[in-house]
Design a binder for these strands. Structure first.
Length: 819
DNA sequence: TCCTAGCGCTTTTTT
DNA sequence: AGCGCTAGGA
């Protein structure tokens, strides 16, 4: 980056079998112009170095977790540039995510200086596909200013297509069709290539017709979806050999990151480009292929040597991340997989701590244990940002978040709803699109009645009908309709105002900064007003997001390039800096690392996911196992696995058994922790573990609750798990319906003490008569709702305004005084 | 046109 | 349980 840190002279051309031919004058000049990399090869281990220097022919680098994969990729690019084998513009480097592309760009320019910034062909498959398509749009029936539809637009369009074919959208949901079409596109299949049998699965055999109709509709709209960005490239290159050849000539060297995640379409895309020069270097790890469910084809990496004869395969097995026990545990698990190329990770690091396995009674206790351990780590001067909790499914997060809120542990959820997927952002973008691209019907439709301006279903239908009849955009149709009296006066007036606004904004476009224009549009359209009037808790956050959106536009030269960027980039701009625990899914954790990793929910059915097993059998199981491997290899120094005996799934309590992966861990690298309250979990029969009072398994809920309440008052120290919140008496009688229907299973604890739970406020309220120890306006802390202020007191019943949860009536025994 | 009660669905998620 | 969507009524 910094030119001042000038780099010493190049090392001599690598002295190996693939030594380049003598350099011509122009090539020498090129080398001279390339920024010098210092001893960029020096820090590499022998395998890494081999991977960097094997520039010619197909190369597969099998890079295990934490083996320096990104380093190899970036150094390889630097090497190609520094040795004069290629200009930056002659190197194609593809990644899956924008984040990965950004990082790679950064690291390359760090190595080679400003030349790296100029790598025009470093990007995601989709970004590069877009670039190619814009240049040759007319050859595939598009104009070069085609719009890229996001998922929501895609669904909206499919709904229209389904409706147009006279199919009941409720019976055959657009979402499902979208996943069919995405699946076909992932496999590189155009409508005419889809196997007849497959398409029959949707809408009684009309799936294929719908796919065709959808594609036709996209063309009319001058639009593509994400899949098309690759598919249309394939079509372009196949139908126009001269165009293909120009790209084959251009890309002297090609690099692919995360090759195990490529789908068939991407494989075909790469193969077409690599056919001529064959300098294709794929980096990946078959043991980290976890995206099969969205079309990734592990076979691509497993078959690499077959697909690219004469390929060099290099294994990176030296792990620089994890300590010995963690690595051995991860290796032990992944070794059970059959479909793999086989690698053995090793480390020169110390053995470190063993992987721990802990059982918990239920998911709440699991969350409590994790919270406690994190607090202990924190007290021990560990940074929270070095700690992560990795879950299998997002639904697991809530309980853990609840616990963190209660404890006041700062945390951040990674990979939540993405910035650009948030409704308010999509709405704002729709306004901008409708302004900048008047033919963008989907954008227009999204905001025509947002905020509500009296243009409901009927009005939209009317515009639609006219647009279709006159074969014009909805915007044009609307323009026509305000001049006629096909519409009722009220909507007509409203529509006229809206059209006038759009005219005004469009007129501003060339003389107003685009971010200013955006602010104006959001203001004048009443959109920001809409959220300002909204009293809900997240309205403020949404307004904040809108501000952030406008601010982020500054970085782009004009509205068009901003919209282009938006269509492809879906990353949230994470605010860094604070010391927080990270909470995310295992999928989101790929590529990250933390000192300490908590892995809750290792239970059959949840992890491995029952659905993965049902739908994909052994392949599904192996993918889950890879996920376990990914989870463990995120840990640098500590990995902690948990399972609970009872977990609520879709609102119902279920008895669960530990994951088979727990038992696949190699014994000698694992330590089973003592549960804080000693109760046997493993091997306990389902009924034993869940009957609270002898045979009360079938006892009506009210009896159980009474018994529990009595016990609660008798034992103030008992483990309080209910919230103490009041509920209507009626609701109470509706809840205790026994196991599997919402009632919570009871713990059997050694001393015969049973934790009271779901305590019915009314009963407990009668059983304790002591006056409240809390004062009006006092601060209290509630186990479930967190901190709050006492608003009213009635005996032992408090009305508390919780900071997070709002106003609730709770029993004072459920709160404690807080500062 | 707007509000709300009820229904059904529910892994993982990028572009 | 929680969310989003839809239908049906005000």
């Amino acid at each position: 980056m910094n030119p001042a840190q000038a780099l010493p002279a190049l090392p001599a051309a690598p002295d190996d079998d693939h030594a380049p031919p003598p350099l011509s004058i122009s090539e020498r000049a090129r080398v001279a112009a390339a920024p010098r990399a210092s001893d960029y090869l020096a820090g590499l281990n022998p395998e890494q170095r081999q991977a960097v220097e094997a520039t010619e022919g197909p190369v597969l680098v099998l890079a295990g977790a934490g083996t320096g994969k990104t380093r190899v990729l970036t150094t390889r690019i630097a090497h190609l540039i520094a040795t004069g084998k290629a200009w930056p513009s002659g190197i194609l480097a593809v990644t899956f995510t924008n984040k990965a592309a950004r990082e790679m760009k950064e690291r390359v320019s760090h190595l080679v200086g400003a030349a790296g910034e100029g790598m025009p062909w470093l990007g995601t498959f989709h970004a590069i596909g877009t670039k190619v398509l814009r240049r040759h749009a007319e050859l595939v029936g598009l104009r070069s200013d085609f719009t890229i539809l996001g998922m929501d637009d895609q669904i909206r369009l499919l709904k229209q297509v389904i409706a147009a074919e006279g199919i009941d959208e409720k019976r055959w949901p657009a979402r499902q069709l979208a996943s069919f079409i995405d699946g076909w596109k992932n496999r590189g299949l155009q409508p005419k290539e889809v196997p007849a049998g497959e398409a029959a699965a949707f809408a009684n055999g009309r799936g294929l017709a719908l796919y065709g109709a959808y594609q036709a509709r996209l063309k009319t709209l001058n639009a593509t979806d994400f899949g098309d960005l690759l598919l249309e490239c394939l079509r372009l290159w196949r139908d126009n050999p001269d165009v293909l050849e120009s790209y084959q000539q251009r890309f002297r060297y090609m690099l692919v990151d995360e090759y195990q995640d490529t789908n068939v379409a991407q494989y075909l895309w790469l193969r077409l480009l690599a056919q001529a020069r064959k300098n294709l270097c794929c980096v990946g790890d078959d043991d980290q292929s976890i995206y099969g469910w969205r079309g990734a084809e592990v076979d691509n990496i497993l078959r690499f040597e077959h697909d690219f004869p004469g390929a060099t395969v290099i294994r990176l097995e030296r792990n620089y991340r994890s300590t010995g026990h963690i690595l051995a545990a991860a290796s032990g698990i992944i070794a059970k997989n059959k479909d793999r190329l086989g690698k053995t990770l090793r480390t020169e690091d110390e053995a470190g701590e063993k992987v721990t396995v802990s059982g918990a009674w239920d998911s709440e206790e699991e969350a409590r244990q994790i919270g406690e351990e994190i607090e202990a780590l924190h007290a021990n001067k560990e940074r929270l940002s070095d700690v992560a909790v990795l879950v299998r499914i997002s639904a697991q997060m809530r309980e853990i978040e609840d616990r963190f809120v209660t404890l006041g542990l700062p945390y951040r959820v990674i990979g939540g709803p993405r910035f650009y997927e948030r409704a308010e952002i999509r709405d704002a973008l729709a306004y901008l699109r409708a302004t900048a691209q008047p033919a963008d019907d989907l954008a227009f439709e999204r905001i025509v009645n947002l905020p509500k301006r009296g243009l409901g279903e009927a009005a939209v239908q009317c515009i639609h009908a006219h647009a279709r009849r006159a074969r014009v955009s909805m915007m044009q149709a609307a323009r026509y309709l305000v001049e006629t009296d096909e519409m009722k006066p009220a909507p007509r007036r409203s529509l006229r105002d809206l059209m006038a606004s759009f005219d005004r904004w469009r007129a501003m476009m060339d003389r107003t900064a685009h971010n200013e224009l955006a602010a104006t549009i959001l203001e004048e359209s009443g959109y920001t007003d809409m959220w300002q009037k909204e009293k809900s808790a997240d309205a403020a956050g949404r307004l904040e997001n809108l501000k952030e959106l406008v601010r982020s536009m500054e970085e782009f030269p004009d509205l068009a390039s901003f919209l282009e960027h938006i269509a492809l980039v879906m990353d949230a701009n994470e605010t860094e800096g604070q010391d927080r625990v990270s909470l995310m899914t295992l999928h989101a954790a790929k590529g990250l690392e933390f000192d300490t990793v908590f892995l809750p929910g290792w239970e059959e059915g949840l992890f491995p996911s029952q659905r993965a097993l049902d739908e994909n059998g052994r392949a599904g199981l192996e993918e889950e196992r890879r996920l376990a491997h990914v989870g463990l290899t995120r840990a640098k120094r500590r990995a902690k696995i948990y399972f609970a005996s009872n977990r609520r799934i879709h609102g119902m309590w279920n008895s669960t058994i530990p994951s088979r992966f727990v038992d696949e861990l190699p014994e000698e690298h694992v330590e089973v922790t003592e549960a804080p309250a000693a109760y046997s979990v493993r091997g306990a029969s389902r009924f034993e573990t869940m009957t609270p009072f002898g045979s009360s398994y079938q006892t009506p809920g009210w009896q159980r609750a009474q018994a529990r309440a009595a016990e609660a008052s008798a034992d103030p120290d008992s483990d309080i798990r209910g919230s103490g919140e009041f509920s209507e008496p009626g609701a109470f009688f509706n809840q205790g319906r026994g196991f599997g229907s919402g009632a919570r299973p009871q713990r059997r604890s050694p001393g015969g003490r049973t934790g009271p739970q779901m305590i019915e406020g009314e009963i407990l309220a009668k059983s304790t008569g002591a006056p409240s120890a809390y004062a009006l306006g006092g601060r209290v802390l509630h186990l479930k709702f967190g901190p709050g202020t006492v608003a009213a007191i009635d005996g032992n019943k408090l009305t508390v305004d919780f900071d997070k949860a709002g106003r609730k009536m709770v029993l004072d025994s459920f709160v404690e005084a807080a500062s």
